[in-house]
Amino acid sequence: MQPVRLVLLLLAGAREGENDFLEFPSLQDAIAFGRELYNEPRFQLEGIEDGNGKQLILFDQLNELCRSPIPTPRRSYG
């Protein structure tokens, strides 16, 4: 699996209005970090793209994923 980039729109500071990119080894890792940043006033989650800049997850879908609760693994007994 190739690394992916979480795209953030900066909402404050000297680079306000510019995009910033954070690289992660997988989509799951990028989404997990996006959940941590969700509702952060300094950033807006814009999407996730591959190393070539191709959009893998768009704004609406990413924000829906990050807004939803973290799935809890089911335990099986037996």
Rank of each mutant, 00 (worst) to 15 (best):
4 V>C: 13
4 V>P: 01
4 V>A: 05
5 R>H: 15
6 L>D: 01
6 L>R: 12
6 L>S: 07
7 V>F: 01
8 L>V: 13
8 L>K: 13
8 L>F: 12
9 L>V: 13
9 L>F: 06
9 L>P: 01
10 L>M: 12
10 L>I: 15
11 L>H: 08
12 A>L: 09
12 A>T: 15
12 A>P: 00
13 G>E: 03
13 G>T: 09
14 A>I: 09
14 A>G: 09
15 R>A: 10
15 R>H: 11
15 R>C: 05
15 R>K: 14
16 E>T: 15
16 E>L: 09
18 E>C: 10
19 N>E: 14
20 D>S: 11
20 D>A: 14
21 F>H: 14
22 L>H: 08
23 E>Q: 12
24 F>W: 07
24 F>K: 04
25 P>R: 09
25 P>N: 04
26 S>Q: 08
29 D>C: 07
30 A>R: 03
30 A>S: 11
30 A>K: 07
30 A>Q: 05
31 I>M: 07
31 I>G: 03
32 A>K: 10
34 G>M: 02
36 E>L: 14
36 E>D: 02
36 E>W: 03
37 L>W: 00
37 L>N: 00
37 L>I: 01
38 Y>R: 11
38 Y>M: 01
38 Y>A: 04
39 N>D: 01
39 N>V: 03
39 N>F: 11
40 E>T: 07
41 P>G: 08
41 P>D: 05
42 R>H: 11
42 R>P: 00
42 R>W: 07
43 F>I: 09
43 F>R: 05
46 E>G: 01
47 G>Q: 05
47 G>H: 05
48 I>E: 00
48 I>Y: 02
48 I>D: 03
49 E>T: 11
50 D>V: 10
50 D>E: 08
50 D>I: 06
50 D>A: 06
52 N>Q: 15
52 N>F: 13
53 G>Y: 10
54 K>P: 01
54 K>M: 12
54 K>G: 02
54 K>E: 13
55 Q>I: 15
56 L>K: 09
56 L>E: 03
57 I>H: 02
58 L>N: 11
58 L>T: 10
59 F>T: 01
59 F>P: 01
60 D>I: 05
61 Q>G: 01
61 Q>Y: 07
61 Q>T: 13
62 L>I: 09
63 N>P: 13
63 N>W: 09
63 N>H: 08
63 N>C: 12
64 E>G: 10
65 L>F: 13
65 L>N: 07
66 C>H: 09
68 S>C: 06
69 P>G: 08
69 P>K: 12
70 I>S: 12
70 I>E: 13
71 P>S: 07
71 P>A: 05
71 P>M: 07
72 T>G: 07
